[in-house]
């Protein structure tokens, strides 16, 4: 499984800004956007580890400018079990 990257923001606009910056910065796929509740939105991307790191960094920098950035995280080698979890998210979105 590829690496996963997360950027969590407070509010939708910052999240969209982050997603845009992430997709532009590196070769990553946006796997999902999760509304966590309380106005928190998480953007999740997938790709090789270098790209994911670059995307998360760019996403964080952009989100900070337009809204509130809550957290960032990279999982370089996700456990295979996570794959099913994200498949669930993807299917839910369809």
């Amino acid at each position: 499984m590829n690496s996963l990257g997360f950027v969590e923001t407070k509010g939708f606009v910052a999240a969209v800004e982050a997603a845009d910056a992430m997709a532009k910065a590196a070769n990553v796929t946006i796997v999902g956007t999760e509304r966590v509740g309380g106005g928190l939105v998480a953007i999740i991307v997938e790709g090789d580890v270098g790209s994911v790191k670059a995307a998360v960094d760019a996403g964080a920098a952009s989100a900070k400018k337009v809204g509130e950035l809550v957290s960032v995280h990279v999982i370089a080698r996700p456990n295979a079990a996570l794959e099913d979890f994200f498949k669930g998210i993807r299917e839910k979105k369809k």
């Binding site: 960094d57 760019a58 964080a60 920098a61 900070k64 509130e68 950035l69 809550v70 957290s71 960032v72």
Partner: peptide, 10 residues
């Protein structure tokens, strides 16, 4: 809230 340092900050 956490502070996050990015490449741009550096």
């Amino acid at each position: 809230m956490k502070n996050i340092l990015t490449g741009e900050d550096i």
